[in-house]
Amino acid sequence: MPVIKVKGMSCQHCVKSVTEAMEKLGAKDVSIDLLSGDVTYSEDTPIALDAIKEAVTKIGFEVVE
């Protein structure tokens, strides 16, 4: 499963916001580890990393590499 690191999440509301933003793009099986900031999603998700970064940034978080 692909993994991205999202900075700035601090609660379950943050997790829900990021999950919903990614699912709107078509991401499947989104799973977030709040402590590490790791976000995983299905390899079957045909979404460019740039689109994910843009969606996550729009809701106030940062994708770090």
Rank of each mutant, 00 (worst) to 15 (best):
I52C: 08
D33S: 09
V30T: 08
A55I: 06
G26V: 01
Y41A: 03
K28W: 07
T40R: 02
G26H: 03
D38F: 04
D29A: 12
V30A: 12
K53T: 08
G60N: 09
Y41C: 06
G60H: 04
L34P: 02
D29Y: 10
I32W: 01
T40M: 09
T57E: 13
L34Q: 02
F61L: 08
D29M: 15
A55C: 09
K28E: 13
T57P: 10
A55F: 08
V39K: 00
V30G: 10
P46H: 06
L34S: 05
V39H: 00
I52M: 04
D44H: 14
A48V: 12
V30Q: 04
S42M: 13
K58A: 07
A27V: 08
D29R: 09
V39P: 00
G26Q: 04
K58P: 06
T45M: 04
V39G: 03
V63Y: 06
V63Q: 09
K58D: 14
T40D: 13
G26S: 02
D33A: 10
G26W: 01
D44V: 09
G26I: 00
I47Q: 05
S36N: 09
F61T: 04
T40H: 01
D50T: 14
E62K: 14
T57N: 14
S31G: 12
S31D: 13
A27K: 03
V30K: 07
E62A: 10
L35W: 11
T45E: 05
G60R: 06
D38R: 08
D50L: 12
P46D: 06
E43H: 11
I52E: 02
G37A: 01
S36P: 07
Y41V: 06
D33R: 02
I59K: 14
E54N: 09
A55Q: 02
A51H: 14
V63D: 13
D50C: 11
I59S: 15
T57A: 10
L34E: 03
E43W: 12
D44Y: 08
D38P: 06
T45R: 01
I59Y: 15
V56L: 02
K53M: 11
G37L: 00
K58R: 08
V63C: 08
P46I: 03
E43Q: 12
Y41E: 07
K28H: 04
F61W: 02
G60S: 12
P46W: 05
V56D: 01
D44P: 14
I52V: 03
A27S: 03
P46S: 07
E43S: 11
T45H: 01
A51D: 11
V39I: 06
L35D: 10
E62T: 15
D50W: 13
